[in-house]
């Protein structure tokens, strides 16, 4: 562990102006909030590049990850982020806890607070569940993905990755392709991208598009919806493919994976319509050969692995800002 005095904690010199008890979605974040996360994450990325990639900023803090749904990367990313700042981390999954004995979410959350959890990172398969948790605990709640609603840290790490390559996003065109209707990643990205000044095009089969979300872009029409990927990609600065769940075929939302691939796979032919060098992104885990071709996933324009690495820095920033706000 590196001494805090010797290697000062990253982040702005003065106490950061973070006002949120919880991070449940990006929709309530101002541009200043987002800038603060981005600047803090820049500093965290620097920490991660050190030979001993750790600081003691969160020493004494207890971070609990409470996962009601399977996850590898998000849970691991949060755990690494918390440990990199010296926090104690407790990992709980629904299958290995009293949840299987029928304990309610509210009781679980209150118990964890009583045990001493300062921050609760929660993944849940039901939309809105973290809101219920946040309402019923003094601990700070970070939404690690809820149902088909929101995934704010994914959106922030996506934004962070875009900004590192493109700089300010004002007026940039981001195309999100796939099962937008059921995507918590897409929803949270819409709010953070709008706050950052970008324009968003949501593209997918008509059955998988949220028809009313275009109104989120306001009168300037900064959110567009289309079922035509070739047209969507024109002048795109960023192309983000979403994971397609195989069960969408079983429920009849798409006729077949073949039809999906023909219409919506992000591949070299399609990418030729975007701006040269347009970033290729994916929140993972990928179905290579379905929503994205292996060539596109691993090509020169792909920043998919970088997203994962940046995820740790962004989650460090979020944990740091929230823990600091609590001690004030």
């Amino acid at each position: 562990m590196i001494d805090v005095q010797e290697r000062p904690a990253p982040g702005p010199a003065e106490a950061p102006a973070w006002r949120h008890k919880d991070l449940l979605d990006t929709d309530v974040l101002s541009r200043a909030d987002i800038d603060l996360v981005m600047e803090t994450a820049d500093a965290m990325l620097e920490v991660r590049s050190r030979p001993v990639a750790k600081v003691a900023t969160l020493r004494g803090a207890t971070v609990v990850t409470l996962f009601y749904e399977q996850s590898t990367r998000t849970r691991a990313s949060f755990e690494v982020a918390a440990k990199a700042m010296g926090a104690d981390v407790v990992n709980l999954t629904a299958s290995g806890s009293s949840v299987v004995k029928g304990e309610s979410l509210v009781d679980t959350v209150r118990t964890l607070e009583a045990i001493g959890a300062d921050l609760l990172v929660m993944r849940h398969d039901r939309s809105g569940a973290p809101y219920l948790a946040a309402k019923n605990t003094k601990a700070g709640v970070i939404n690690g993905g809820d149902g088909t609603h929101a995934h704010p840290t994914q959106a922030l790490l996506d934004l962070f990755t875009m900004r590192r390559h493109l700089g300010a996003l004002d007026g940039k065109k981001v195309v999100i392709v796939g099962d937008v209707l059921h995507s918590r990643v897409a929803r949270s990205n819409v709010w953070s991208l709008l706050a950052a000044g970008a324009n968003v095009t949501l593209c997918g089969p008509a059955t998988l598009l949220p028809r009313t979300l275009a109104s989120a872009g306001g009168e300037e029409g900064r959110v567009a919806l289309t079922a035509d990927l070739d047209r969507a990609l024109v002048d795109a600065d960023v192309v983000m493919a979403l994971r397609i769940q195989k069960e969408r075929q079983a429920t009849g939302l798409i006729p077949s994976l073949r039809e999906y691939i023909n219409g919506y796979q992000v591949n070299a032919t399609r990418l030729a319509r975007a701006k040269p060098g347009a970033l290729v992104m994916h929140p993972g885990p990928m179905n290579e050969g379905i929503e994205i071709s292996p060539e596109a996933a691993h090509g020169l324009a792909s920043v998919i692995e970088e997203q994962v690495a940046n995820g740790v820095a962004v989650r460090m920033a979020v944990l740091y800002l929230m823990a600091t706000a609590r001690t004030k």
């Binding site: 939309s127 809105g128 149902g147 088909t148 609603h149 949220p210 009313t212 979300l213 109104s215 989120a216």
Partner: peptide, 10 residues
């Protein structure tokens, strides 16, 4: 509709 799409509820 508008609210269900916003909230990610079926």
């Amino acid at each position: 509709g508008r609210v269900s799409e916003r909230l990610g509820l079926a």
